[in-house]
Design a protein around this nucleic acid. Sequence first.
DNA 1: TGGTTGACAACCA
DNA 2: GTGGTTGCCAACC
Length: 100
Amino acid sequence: MTIFEQQIYYVLKQIPKGKISSYGLIASMAGYPGYVRQVGRLLSNLPEGSTLPWFRVLNSQGKISLTGADLERQKQLLIQDGVAVSEAGKVNLKMYLWQP
DNA sequence: TGGTTGACAACCA
DNA sequence: GTGGTTGCCAACC
């Protein structure tokens, strides 16, 4: 467990229900601007049973970066969160983007 | 040691 | 809005 990971997890836990954020934003808020790809790698390695709201993280276009079954899973979780997600796995950033 | 890859971002046409 | 290019940094060959 590195400081970097702790920071990412910390920021992740701050995202309120019904809101979403982006990889770049997460990385920046954690104090590591430019480490977007590490954020993605970190989330991809999260255990399935994790309580972290990893599904509230989208790319800068407000779109889910996953494909196939994984995309569907994340889409469902977001909808359960009260976030409107299009068929393509895209959300309205104007309405749901979270930034303190 | 060096090249490739990736749940990305910012730019530009 | 879409598609290509470049920058980015650690993890993996």
